[in-house]
Design a protein around this nucleic acid. Structure first.
Lengths: 146, 146
DNA sequence: CGTCGATGGTTATCCGCGTAACCACCCCGT
DNA sequence: ACGGGGTGGTTACGCGGATAACCATCGACG
């Protein structure tokens, strides 16, 4: 592959990631959330209360990031951090009522965003998009295979 | 579109964002660069010296980000920031010799990254990838149309 | 000419995310 | 029983990137 083609691919990925994140930021702003926090809420809504280490792996971010994000969401009253009974090191994170309610709103925005994203695409392309993007993500994943 | 599908799309984009950036970070680390800086170097190599405002638009990031990134690259000796002769407000940014040399190394990594990214994809899919991703980026672009 | 909106840049401050370093605790093997 | 590797979590710090607020300058128009 020559540089021009490589650059086209890399720049396109870069642009998509910037814009997608910016759009998330704009959609989330009215709710008082910042990009990245929605992933925490959605994961907790999807899988229920869990240990931070598990949350970290589910989100694909490092533990220190989880510590800070959960702290802030806790301060906003959207989730609760309680010590785990079975393991004195661990901390369980779970949504509060307010957090669950907010997550419902996030879900709405999530649908809006996805529809915007795939607008104008042939149905087949749109359907295959998650798989394609996931493949790309796995291709560049430098972390130990799960 | 229901929530499951929307979530699949959004999560895939998010994951790609995280992994792609992480990979760039890992590749750039040996050169002492951080993700985002390579885009500055490549743009300057591609289009030559330019005003910061133009660089900001070319990169798709806000002016304050450009100010800080160019400052750091200047401190590292990879580029020069000089006042524009025709406009006392503006500042021209250009690569130094060392910057140009470093950019050649970045280009190599850029090819590596792109090849990793599209690994295992059907040729047609790989060929259409930049166009597809660009379409997605435009779909979620909330900025004023150029 | 002078005023005033538009443009280029910077500073301050916020957040997500990463690495490095560290502590507390779990648990397995000797 | 205890020692030590592995794991959960946090703190400190750095970077990219965003917004808000601000200053300096340009340029068009009355």
């Amino acid at each position: 592959m020559d540089f021009e083609e490589a650059d086209a691919v890399n720049q396109a990925v870069r642009l998509l990631t910037l814009r997608h994140r910016a759009r998330i930021s704009a959609l989330l702003a009215p709710l008082g959330l910042h990009p990245g926090q929605e992933a925490v809420l959605l994961e907790l809504a999807r899988s229920g209360p869990m240990i931070q280490a598990r949350l970290s792996r589910a989100l694909g971010v490092e533990p220190p990031s989880v510590t800070l994000m959960t702290r802030k969401l806790e301060a906003s009253g959207y989730l609760r951090r309680t010590p785990a009974p079975s393991d004195k090191r661990a901390g369980v994170v779970e949504l509060t009522e307010r957090g669950a309610a907010l997550t419902e709103q996030v879900k709405e925005l999530w649908r809006t965003l996805a529809e915007e994203t795939v607008a104008g695409l042939p149905a087949g392309t749109a359907a295959g998009l998650p798989g394609l993007l996931t493949t790309l993500a796995r291709n560049v994943d430098s972390r130990p295979a799960t």
